[in-house]
């Protein structure tokens, strides 16, 4: 069938809208951080952070603080979340329009795949942030990579909508690639949480008077970040496991063997092993805390390497590529 060009154009427009809205949300998240009052040390010793959202999940102000600034920060935070949701809708529109125009799943090449991964990360983050006020404070650190990622995808990975190549015409595209996108998107959130955990826990280890006063102080407590990283990894790991297994089943019918150490297969395996290492590290004395978080960060780097370098530079059987 011939693709519907107007829908394809609409998809591209949605892409621009999504990037623009994410940028607006990013600014709003920055404003939230800027207006949120820095925790005061005296009160911190009592065990309560000055920014109530950091402490309680419900954002109850602690009475003595100037509520005005906090309310303003909270208003910026809500605005940021709202704009993020709008951006995510436009972002979903990119994929939906492609799917309609081409009458196929919108993950037939790297542009579409990467776009979908970022969307999963955003949705995962929004869901978490809606459930826990504390996580709204890390919006900047989620949206900044999102905006960067989207711009990179638009600049370097963009391809015109086109029909699928024969090898991708299989029900396994829907199964394997969907699982890979979900797993990848969730691991991204997990990795960001671990990076922030590393920053925050380093700060917390310092004596009170040497602690950072900038954004570090406004991050959620390290235990919140650590739990977020672990929970998302626990959620992502079986999905990623399933993606690898489904990929092997597909490879058996498409390439004549279920596993052949093709570069993409190799790096998916490496990522799987690293995340298994992370889950172990979390429950092993001597590895808990910062070492485990570093493992998760390595996992994130492996995933990104797998998406970028392996797809674009090494030649394998996976027919995604820049073009």
């Amino acid at each position: 069938m011939t693709p519907d060009q107007s829908l394809l154009d609409l998809s591209d427009t949605f892409f621009s809208i999504a990037v623009a809205l994410y940028s607006v949300a990013l600014v709003a998240f920055c404003a939230q951080l800027a207006f949120g009052r820095r925790p005061e040390r005296a009160r911190e010793l009592v065990g309560a952070g000055g920014v109530p959202a950091v402490v309680g999940d419900d954002g109850v102000a602690d009475g003595t603080a100037d509520r005005g600034a906090q309310r303003r920060a909270q208003r910026w935070g809500s605005l940021a979340i709202a704009v993020t949701v709008l951006a995510a809708l436009a972002h979903a529109g990119v994929l939906v329009c492609r799917a309609l125009a081409l009458d196929r799943l919108p993950w037939g090449n790297m542009y579409e795949f990467a776009t979908a991964v970022v969307l999963v990360s955003v949705v995962a983050y929004v869901v978490l942030a809606l459930r826990s006020q504390a996580l709204r404070h890390i919006g900047v650190f989620v949206l900044a990579p999102v905006v960067l990622g989207m711009v990179g995808i638009g600049l370097f990975l963009y391809v015109e909508g086109a029909p699928l190549v024969a090898a991708l015409r299989s029900a396994w595209l829907g199964i394997h690639v969907t699982a890979a996108i979900l797993g990848f998107g969730i691991f991204l959130v997990s990795g960001i949480a671990s990076v922030l955990y590393l920053v925050r826990s380093k700060d917390e280890a310092k004596p009170a008077e040497e602690r950072g006063s900038g954004f570090v102080a406004r991050l959620p407590e390290s235990s919140v970040l650590d739990r977020l990283a672990h929970r998302t990894a626990v959620f992502g790991f079986p999905i990623w496991t399933f993606a690898v297994i489904a990929g092997a089943i597909w490879a058996e019918s498409a390439w004549g063997r279920f596993w052949g150490w093709d570069p993409k297969e190799t790096w998916s395996f490496i990522a799987w092993v690293v995340y298994a290492g992370y889950l172990h590290a979390r429950t092993t004395a001597g590895w808990r805390g910062r070492p485990a978080a570093w493992v998760n960060v390595v996992g994130l780097m492996v995933m990104i390497f797998n998406l970028t370098f392996v797809n674009l530079v090494s030649s394998g059987l996976h027919s995604y590529g820049g073009k």
Partner: peptide, 14 residues
């Protein structure tokens, strides 16, 4: 050992 395994697979892809 898990890390060694991950590391050992790397040259196989490069």
């Amino acid at each position: 050992l898990l890390f060694l395994l991950a590391l050992a697979a790397v040259p196989g892809s490069l």
